[in-house]
Design a protein around this nucleic acid. Structure first.
Lengths: 225, 225
DNA sequence: AAAGTTAATTATGAATTCATTATTCAGTCA
DNA sequence: TGACTGAATAATGAATTCATAATTAACTTT
């Protein structure tokens, strides 16, 4: 009898944290928007108590902002915040790359190779959706490969915070090609188990993402003015 | 009429998050201990609702662990967790050092110089309490000097998680001297505005702290067996 | 006496209620 | 008309209540 995968006993508030965070990350709840408790309660079929508990957690994670007696608003990711978040993400990825190089087993690296191929295919057919998914899986796998829970949890949180922005700003053809190049480099360094090299290239990759993102946002601003 | 410092309007649950986190960090609530809601409510004079909201936040920050229908326990910091946390802290400090070098103004650096002197004095008189305080202030100021909120908040959280362990394991005379040396180096690099150098030395400093801590814990374990 | 079973107690998760603060909107006055 | 006042309404923060799961205690049964 296998009892290792124990009974999934989740509480309402845990469920709600997940659901609400997804609503924010997937841009269903828009930045700056009020989050009226009553309405959410009705549409989710729960009472205010677990919902409010969830909102407190979301607030501590930075997805919403709470103002006393004035409820919750979905926090908007400003450019300044992007420019603060990416360097942190970049150093975390650097560390993860270094550790993953040392710690991943061959099954894990092969999994990444496979997703890398998927990503290349998605690029060839210009399938943005599939590309983003494969790309995300690769980064996630490298983080996971670092075998460092703390690193992983903080990375996951920060990545979620900026995911929306990354989806919004469609990458240019030029940047997309560059990103593919960078991924090729990363794979080579991983195959060579060059921990330092992989770390550095992951950091650079992330900082380049930021540059491209800021450029895209600026272009967007100009088209509006 | 000066209205800049607006009315402090804090909610109960915010207050409680602060209070409870301090109780954990200051080791009043011991690791592994159950956190009975009713008792805490009585001693803090609040109802269960805001307390439970606070516990949810503390859980998401990692200070307590929640089990469905079985309440909250203060989470104990295992050696594995220390060994996962310190590298993350170290890279964050590295980044902070680099940024602080570029961004701090002279008032901020002078403040650090001053606390550095305090720290040296505390060392000379072997005042552990004062040393820890000055040391913490210096690191905090460097983080603050990075002008990166995201970096700061994640660093603060991680630092709080391991603070208890750092207090517990008293530093050896040897390590203490080494730490002072490292701080001297850091100050020199800061004066020279050597961003890369300061970053690297702060990272190293942090990793050395980990080594010393692990060594101290091992010694403790042996004395018990 | 030890292990197992069931009943009583306690603690927790969630819904509801109550009190207070914001917000809205009609009415007033310049 | 437009800004201000204040009552009415709605939303939030917190206490209380209720239902259920976990723990403890008492009681068998061997």
């Amino acid at each position: 009898m296998n009892l290792t995968d124990s009974i999934k006993r989740t509480t309402l508030h845990e469920e709600l944290v997940e659901r609400l965070r997804n609503l924010v990350v997937e841009d269903v709840l828009k930045p700056g928007e009020k989050v009226p408790e009553k309405q959410l309660c009705d549409s989710l079929g729960v009472s205010r108590t677990p919902l409010r508990e969830a909102l407190k957690v979301l607030a501590s994670e930075g997805f919403v902002v709470l103002q006393a007696n004035r409820g919750a608003r979905v926090s908007s990711v400003t450019r300044e915040e992007l420019e603060n978040t990416f360097p942190v993400l970049a150093t975390l990825e650097q560390l993860a790359g270094e550790l993953a190089c040392q710690r991943m087993n061959s099954a894990e690296t092969q999994q990444i190779e496979s997703r890398h191929k998927d990503m290349l295919n998605a690029y060839d057919s210009r399938d943005r959706q599939a590309y983003f998914k494969a790309n995300q899986d690769i980064h996630q796998a490298l983080i996971r490969g670092s075998r460092n829970d703390i690193l992983e949890s903080h990375h996951t949180l920060l990545a979620a915070r900026v995911r929306r922005a990354r989806f919004m700003a469609n990458l240019s053809g030029e940047r997309w090609a560059q990103a593919i190049d960078e991924h090729e480099t990363m794979m080579e360094l991983l195959r060579a188990r060059d921990a330092d090299g992989l770390g550095k290239s992951m950091k650079l990759h992330m900082m380049n993402k930021l540059s491209a993102l800021v450029k895209a946002l600026e272009a967007e601003d100009e088209s509006l003015s």
